[in-house]
């Protein structure tokens, strides 16, 4: 009996991500959920600008590549064109979603747009070589904060789930991570719920996945997973920030 294999919703192509980058795990979880819900044939994904710009190469469902940060706006159009049949998700990094695309993110959430958003927070602009992101931690060394992020000069990181939870619009907001077997299992549950909510017509569902960028953090893949526990999670606590149907509000 097969207990684990590549999900059908991912194709055979080898992904371009750096060794040990958790983008790959998150792609797989989205694909596993598509398989389990039987929605591969009617799902349309919207890829961002960032390291996952070529996500369209790896998923077996239809994919669109949006201009930087505009994935929720593109997803809105695709969803509204055929709300009964289209299942629509965006896959976005923190630079894409919380910097250049913040307006699209906030308004899609405020409208309770019936889409699923997979938000990969690795506290850095990975693709462009490791510049400071809106989510980089206070004191974090990046290419553009070589002495560490100085909050007096650059301000404070944006906590996307906490911020969006102040809106009446969104249905579901949860922050998870993928730095251990247990965490990956939990992340999958959240992603599945975010897709199921869309199928049930419940509205805007965002899963923030605290992810690693070993290359630009200057760490080995193993050290990067530890760094998530030691540095990222204290600043970005895991949990459900909104689950309207369940009556939960953090």
């Amino acid at each position: 009996m097969v207990v684990f294999d590549k999900p059908h919703s991912l194709n055979e192509m080898s992904m371009h991500y750096c060794p040990g980058c958790t983008h790959g795990i998150i792609h797989r979880l989205v694909a596993e959920v598509m398989d389990e819900l039987g929605i591969e044939g009617r799902t349309i994904g919207v890829a961002p600008v960032g390291c996952s710009v070529m996500a369209y190469n790896y998923f077996n469902c239809d994919m669109i590549e949006a201009a930087h940060g505009r994935a929720p706006a593109v997803a809105t159009g695709v969803k509204r064109a055929d709300p009964e049949n289209h299942v629509v998700f965006t896959y976005q990094g923190d630079g894409d979603l919380a910097s250049i695309g913040m307006a699209e993110t906030v308004h899609a959430a405020a409208r309770n747009e019936n889409i699923t958003v997979i938000f990969v927070n690795n506290a850095i602009y990975g693709m462009t070589g490791g510049q400071m992101a809106p989510t980089s931690l206070p004191g974090q060394v990046t290419q553009t904060s070589p002495y560490g992020r100085d909050v007096n000069h650059c301000g404070y990181p944006i906590k996307v789930c906490e911020m969006l939870s102040q809106l009446d619009g969104p249905e579901y907001l949860e922050r998870v991570t993928v730095n251990s077997v247990k965490a990956v299992r939990n992340a999958k549950k959240a992603i599945k719920k975010a897709f199921q909510n869309q199928l049930d017509g419940k509205g805007f569902s965002l899963v923030e996945v605290v992810s690693s960028c070993p290359t630009n953090w200057g760490l080995t893949p193993q050290q990067a997973l530890k760094w998530i526990d030691e540095k990222m999670i204290p600043y970005y606590p895991l949990g459900v920030y909104k689950d309207r149907s369940a009556g939960e509000d953090k």
Binding site: D5, K6, C21, G24, I25, R28, S180, V181, R185
Partner: peptide, 11 residues
């Protein structure tokens, strides 16, 4: 489960 590249199949 931890492999980012779906290298391992388990039976």
């Amino acid at each position: 489960i931890m492999c980012p590249d779906c290298v391992i199949k388990v039976e």
